[in-house]
Amino acid sequence: MSLNLIVFLLIAAVILVAAVGVVAFKNIVHSALALILSFLGVAAVYFQLDAGFIGLVQILVYAGAVSVLFVFAVMLVMDRDAGETNLVNPRTRWIGAIIALLLTSGLAAAVYLTKWPQMQEPFAGDAVRQLAGLLLGDYAVAFETAAILLLIAVVGAIILAKGAEE
């Protein structure tokens, strides 16, 4: 076992335990904190996969902005005892578990049975430079569309959250 594999297994354990915490905690504030831990673990996976820029974006956007949004929304809609805020739906609990288990085992079997290409030599060039070239070159239209999408989403979110004029 190389150090790389040990590090990967540790990160994977952190991610999966935190993700189980997100869906298992009864208190939704604890779920939100477990979600932040899971996001940070995913960022660590990105760093391990030579995607440093995406890892930083993950920390900034997910662990920073998205989780703060979640915590604010939790505080805005919490009206009673926080310990009972994140309960399971008794009607869909078992069917949901069965569907998730079948889906995961199916995906795992597909991953296990497929012949994946072996890793070639690691990417040599400057990943951030190439990312910038792709984003502002081949994918410039998608990049600008994403900017407009974000603007529209933020304006729409403000209008929705502010509520209609009386």
Partner: peptide, 9 residues
Amino acid sequence: AGLFGIGVY
């Protein structure tokens, strides 16, 4: 796949 399954659940 594991993370996706937990999300589906």
